[in-house]
């Protein structure tokens, strides 16, 4: 049963990611990215990381993507039609080639190396309390640095916007 859900979510995530790049409508593209995030959230939940799963939905799918859609709608981006230049074709080919090499490397590594044994997770694994405790003890420095980074971003945004108002 778990395996079925895993494959279902995984395949849907791959499909959504591929379709997101391929569709032409920016809005559809954004929606497919949301679908992809949904599947990832489901995979997190299956791993027992409930908090991460919910935050994935809340922050990425729920807030950031609303902002992305908002911008697309404000700028009224529509489907772009035009002739594909040779430059673009070359870039795309290069991109596919790099991706192919990357996948080949991963496949080769998986084939030869041994994966670490999966550990049984404890009952408190992934709960809000457990994640919070680790975040505020072992990882307090990265956590605070990240918050300063975000504060700097907010201040920067305010300064950029202020000059136009």
């Amino acid at each position: 049963m778990e395996l079925l859900i895993f494959y279902g979510l995984g395949l849907l995530a791959l499909f959504a990611a591929a379709a997101m790049i391929m569709v032409r409508q920016p809005v559809t593209s954004a929606l497919l990215l949301i679908l992809n995030m949904f599947c990832l959230s489901g995979l997190y939940a299956m791993l027992g990381a409930h908090l991460i799963a919910i935050l994935q939905l809340l922050v990425y799918a729920g807030a950031i993507m609303v902002l992305v859609l908002f911008v697309i709608m404000l700028l009224n981006l529509r489907e772009k039609k035009g002739i594909v230049s040779k430059h673009q074709i070359a870039l795309q080919t290069a991109g596919v080639a790099v991706f192919g090499v990357f996948m080949a490397v991963i496949a080769a590594r998986l084939h030869t190396s041994q994966l670490p044994n999966p550990k049984a997770v404890t009952a408190s694994f992934g709960t809000v309390g457990a994640v919070g405790r680790v975040l505020f003890t072992d990882y307090i420095l990265p956590f605070e640095i990240a918050s300063i980074l975000l504060l700097a971003a907010i201040v920067g945004a305010v300064i950029l916007a202020k000059s136009k108002v």
């Binding site: 935050l55 939905l57 809340l58 729920g62």
Partner: peptide
């Protein structure tokens, strides 16, 4: 365990 956060996540969808 995430409780009310689930409501927020779903509401944001």
């Amino acid at each position: 365990d995430v409780g009310i956060l689930f409501v927020f996540a779903v509401a944001s969808i």
